[in-house]
């Protein structure tokens, strides 16, 4: 879950907040994930230093609530690269899945 959310944050760039993240997960992973789960995953990623967040302006269509934008950090990018290498290595060692 955290890996998927982190990848979606990278894909969305400057527009990474809850709503587009959930839409991207629905389209790409074909999974409807609750917004609470997404924020819980983002909270864990932020505590690990893989993403940073900033508040946007409150808007009327959101009932006066601000958006919380997320951005991947350098250590987040490094973690993604490392995970990709590890996963590729693991996939390669499973002959049935070749």
């Amino acid at each position: 879950m955290e890996l998927m959310v982190l990848l979606v944050v990278v894909r969305l760039g400057d527009n990474a907040y809850g709503v587009p993240i959930s839409k991207e997960l629905l389209i790409l992973a074909e999974r409807e994930v609750s917004l609470g789960s997404i924020y819980a995953a983002l909270g864990r990623l932020e505590s690990k230093g893989f993403v940073s967040s900033s508040l946007g302006e409150p808007t009327p269509e959101r009932g006066g609530r601000a958006k919380q934008y997320f951005r991947v950090t350098n250590s987040g990018v490094q973690a993604l690269k490392l995970t990709r290498v590890t996963l590729t290595r693991l996939w390669n060692d499973v002959p049935l899945l070749q």
């Binding site: 907040y17 809850g18 709503v19 959930s22 917004l35 609470g36 924020y39 819980a40 983002l42 909270g43 508040l55 409150p58 808007t59 269509e61 959101r62 009932g63 609530r65 601000a66 958006k67 919380q68």
Partner: peptide
Amino acid sequence: TASDDWNEALTGDLIETFR
């Protein structure tokens, strides 16, 4: 009841999606 860390952002996202 929701976590203070993302209470406002989550509420805003839910209202936006609901509307």
